[in-house]
Design a protein around this nucleic acid. Sequence first.
DNA 1: CTGTTAGCGCGTTCAT
DNA 2: ATGAACGCGCTAACAG
Lengths: 334, 334
Amino acid sequence: MPQSAQETDEPGRARVGHRPTILDVAARAGVSKSLVSLALRGAPGVGAATRERILQTADELGYRSNALARALRERRTMLVGVVISSLSNPYHTEIVTSVERAAEAAGLSVLLAHGSRERGRLAGRVEALLDLHVDGLVVVSSWVDAATLQAAARRAPVVMVGRTLEPVSGIDSVNNDDELGARLVVDHLVGRGRERILHVSSSRRPAGLARRDGYQAAMRAHGLERFARVTDPAGIGAALAAGHDAVFARNDVEAFDVLDHAWDHGLSVPGDLAVVGYDDSALALRARPRLTSVHQPRELMGERAVALLAERIGGRAGDRHEVLAPSLVVRGST
Amino acid sequence: MPQSAQETDEPGRARVGHRPTILDVAARAGVSKSLVSLALRGAPGVGAATRERILQTADELGYRSNALARALRERRTMLVGVVISSLSNPYHTEIVTSVERAAEAAGLSVLLAHGSRERGRLAGRVEALLDLHVDGLVVVSSWVDAATLQAAARRAPVVMVGRTLEPVSGIDSVNNDDELGARLVVDHLVGRGRERILHVSSSRRPAGLARRDGYQAAMRAHGLERFARVTDPAGIGAALAAGHDAVFARNDVEAFDVLDHAWDHGLSVPGDLAVVGYDDSALALRARPRLTSVHQPRELMGERAVALLAERIGGRAGDRHEVLAPSLVVRGST
DNA sequence: CTGTTAGCGCGTTCAT
DNA sequence: ATGAACGCGCTAACAG
């Protein structure tokens, strides 16, 4: 004969080493577990006195509903997963923070999964979040490959913050106009009389490529293509030796490297060399001189990402890709 | 008459918009769900041919076991939750990375929850992880209050990386010897002929307090208590004006602020002012000149944190508190 | 041995 | 206000 916990357990006495369940509360309060469920969620159909007694009992027992069981039944978790590949790039973590803020405002809770660039690791992190049945996924890393994104999108709404290397159908995206950002930089530098502008970029990442393209187009537009040159951070020394009066780095991290190089070699900034970064992250303010940098509207990007996720969760079908305008923040490095 | 999925569903045909379940695989392979479960987990008692067919079928259907259901049943998730309050302090994120590495090696998957210092937010993040039934919790933030830690420890093993403000029973901890670290700094500076050593510390955090105490004790040991002085970062200007030839900052972030101040006011480092940080984080290498800093064995700390968690999960009862020795890494700033 | 049945874990929902 | 069923995977007990 099968025995339920209600029959075997001493009613009203929580088993030791065992979180109290809804059944414990029901037994102690002398009602059915259904009623406890209703009462705890403030649903109608529960007498005022009974409700009070149930809440009281739950409180005494320190009852907490089991999120796993609820999620299993409700088919949703109110969780948003955020995947990130760099905890050391302030721009990425600042995006995460803005996503968190927006998610919280929408009643969603954020779980972060972090994985570095190693093949497969990030895909594994995405899997882990999906396995937990997050209601949506925000990807803040261009290292998650298209196949993984596409597969993920079949399991949950996915928003990419930033660019993907190849177009991916079934996901939304939020990013800034990297070409425009690059143009703002070149225009600014040219306006300050700099012409020999070097571009520093270590990256085959999509945003890096777009910025590089924007840089080249802008140089061309100013008739400066003869000075256009791209190097990775390791080649800064050689490139600068060839003669440049300004550097546009693909992001603040690499701009910081350029400043370090200048410091190490006695180059004055902005005297000998103007330096511009991208992202306008905390690093831009850390730098000395403070870094002129292209600002991405992070706060808005986080909000839009969560909004797009919410729309998808609400049933919207088509893909949406939002491109926001960056702006240039001028500081001491130019 | 109740109908099971097996009866209502066309066998071998996954319902659209619905992840295939173990039942779908069972139906398609013509076996019971129990056998599918056994086969998928490589358990004995399944014929070779049958096993093959089942695996094949699962693969065709793209079956993924439902982690929520499994966790509900098995009472464990193989997840470790990590709580962090600052994504902008490299030391914290580097600790996270080392915990991740160690956890992965132990077959555990890490979920990060981030919350800033606002009252209650962090406690909420801890709750969120516990509600997901993480198998253990690593706390990398002294902002999580003692009551929250104690309550958490009743739900899952908890390891604190760093110090708690007040002693907390029921949790383990891993941290470095802050007093020793401070002493290393003072000894080093005195060895280089600096005596007027200022301590910069913004913080009422436990680690900050311990470093401050260590600093004061070390100054006393050198007969330099008359020069001992503590200020917060905002007061650097005034404090330096009072005459100091060295600064020991409570962490790299604040040491960086000191370097910035020096730069802004034309003080040469280490000529006019020697500067020492704490944590030996990525910031120490970013700084110019590069920062002398107290190294905490982050990699080891992450490993020990996960090891302690594993022990607790394995049933160990008593509290364990490990204190590791820091070391001084001397660079250009002194 | 191979494979099945029944029931558990826990919260939600619906018909009674 | 309640019992029964359900969401999904695991497992003890049992049949062939």
